[in-house]
Design a binder for these strands. Structure first.
Lengths: 333, 333
DNA sequence: GTGAAAGCGCTAACAT
DNA sequence: ATGTTAGCGCTTTCAC
């Protein structure tokens, strides 16, 4: 052990710890550092944690690791936390609604220093709320209605605005919306944004132009789009609340014998990989997911450091990837 | 603390630990359990780890978390480890070739009980090799040439066989291969498998029918396919070493004015999400990635438990998802 | 500026 | 079947 090699006992501890090294004579510091290097000594994080009550680890709870959306978030989170010496514990809450809570408890039990939740929903469970008393916590890609927990989310209002304005500028006047489930914060938020933007661009904000899909998947998207198009056969464009819903719209439009991007333009949301390879490639609002992860981790670090972070949400600006699923409306005979 | 609430001191420890509870009087066990529940007591994993030298955590090192391929692997790994009380530490080695090594060292420093590596390459770094002395280690989705570390990998020979036989059965006789880079184990392996299967099905195993793509991406796939098709304009089918390469072939075939699935059939490999939504949908060899994660974790657990696991590779059988990018060869004028 | 000693919360001998 | 004791490897008062 470094202590034997270099000099004496706990001076080594002080020397090796940046925040106490200044107490120690520079020469001694150097000697200790040298010895540590030579012996390949590494402080044992468990022993340290036991003493300092910090594990230098944070838990990240993801609703479904298999969803490509979360890769960039995890990467972003990891990149900043690793920099500060933290490890990232992944929890995959794919076993139903209560699974996330049980993961939160696991993480608490492990005494993580912080928690990042990406699980959906507009309210947070009691478990999570209680957890907030014990550890620093931040939400990513979702928020709570009362904004009581800091959240990093995409600016859905701006994103939907990008899509609606793009369509409006192309000349569309009859635009519909295939919405996500209302109990998910993005489902509700994007729907509201759609209606708001319709007014803004001078079109009628009719709730009847919205059809809610049961879930963010292709199949429900098709169903919803068919319902929407049967109510409003004259629609020339659909803003989908999600890429998969957008792809679902493809099927609906095709089954009606219409051409995507000509008879009916479609926009997606999120911009997942491979969208540019679809036929036609899907115009989509791109959300900066990696950035989201980075910001969430940064916020968490600030929280852990005791800086006071205002709760409430931080909005990240999306961009629009314009592809071939959108075009000017076809002239109507 | 439970000790005060219930009875006396370290009896509680024994009572709470399943593997020592039998020593304690059942009544006492119950009393302790009760008290623990009431006080919301949770054993501190750090203190325990300090004593037992086990952290109940394992590190998983992924070359790129953003690649959708690894989601299922992580999910599989996590699902079995969580069951046994382990936590999963994720390392994202996306910062170049040496990043993985530095992550391995981080993990070692944290005293993980085991390590799962998914980083590519046909040999393992010295760091990793040394790490194997300190902790249990298993490879997933890659192996080492000398099989000195247990590895769970897809059976590429069988997978390519699925593709080649499928095409052969459709009636194809002139089949080419767009290969992955040779320095990656899958690139080399699938190429060899392709040549072997060509002989097996009674076709000529000509190395000239293989074109190596620079990297597993769409663009290089197009380039390679164009080179291949200019050498062999009469090819009626292409086996791609990877889905993205397969999609790259789409572009090449189209740019030649030919129809995919009619003039030229194409198969992919891996079966990533959304492939079924491509136009035409891509026939692909499906690798059981989640299962891979599950098996890797199970093997690791066995290793940790001290059971002797034979090193060498475990091959997981792929299946074939037949879609519309493959069909009988068109009659030639 | 450095040493000595206590103790973080647990588990594992060793008593009883 | 339960209580006692020591100590995992570190940080942190408290002396010197």
């Amino acid at each position: 052990m470094a202590r034997e090699a270099g000099v004496h006992i706990s001076t080594a501890s002080r020397a090796l710890n940046p925040s106490t090294a200044f107490i120690v004579h520079p020469v001694t510091v150097e000697r200790v550092a040298e010895a540590a290097r030579k012996l390949g000594y590494r402080p044992h994080p468990l022993a340290r944690g036991l003493r300092t009550n910090r594990t230098m680890s944070v838990g990240v709870i993801i609703p479904d690791v298999e969803n490509p959306l979360f890769g960039p978030i995890i990467a972003g989170v990891e990149s900043v936390l690793v920099e500060d010496g933290y490890s990232v514990l992944i929890g995959n809450a794919d076993r139903g609604p209560n699974h996330a809570d049980s993961l939160v408890e696991d993480m608490l039990e492990r005494h993580v220093d912080g928690l990042i939740l990406a699980t959906p929903g507009r309210v947070v469970s009691d478990t999570a709320r209680q957890a907030q008393r014990d550890v620093s916590m931040v939400l990513v890609n979702r928020s709570v209605d009362d904004d009581s927990i800091p959240a990093i989310v995409g600016d859905d209002h701006a994103g939907i605005g990008l899509a609606v304005r793009h369509l409006r500028e192309l000349g569309h006047e009859r635009i519909g919306h295939v919405a996500g489930p209302e109990w998910v914060s993005t489902g509700r938020g994007r729907r509201d944004a759609f209606l708001a933007w319709m007014s803004t661009v001078g079109l009628e904000a009719d709730i009847d132009l919205v059809e809610e899909a049961e879930w963010y998947q292709v199949e429900p998207g098709t169903t919803a789009a068919l319902a929407l198009l049967s109510r409003h056969p004259d629609l020339t464009a659909i803003v989908a609340a999600n890429d998969l819903l957008g792809l679902g719209c493809y099927r609906a439009v095709r089954s009606l014998g219409k051409v995507i991007g000509v008879d009916v333009s479609i926009t997606g949301y999120n911009d997942m990989p491979l969208l540019d390879l679809m036929q036609p490639s899907l115009t989509a609002v791109r959300v900066p997911y990696r950035r989201m992860g980075v910001d969430a981790a940064t916020t968490l670090l600030a929280l852990i450091a005791g800086e006071d972070v205002s709760p409430g949400r931080v909005l990240l600006s999306p961009t629009l990837a314009i592809r071939s699923s959108t075009g000017p409306p076809a002239d109507r005979g």
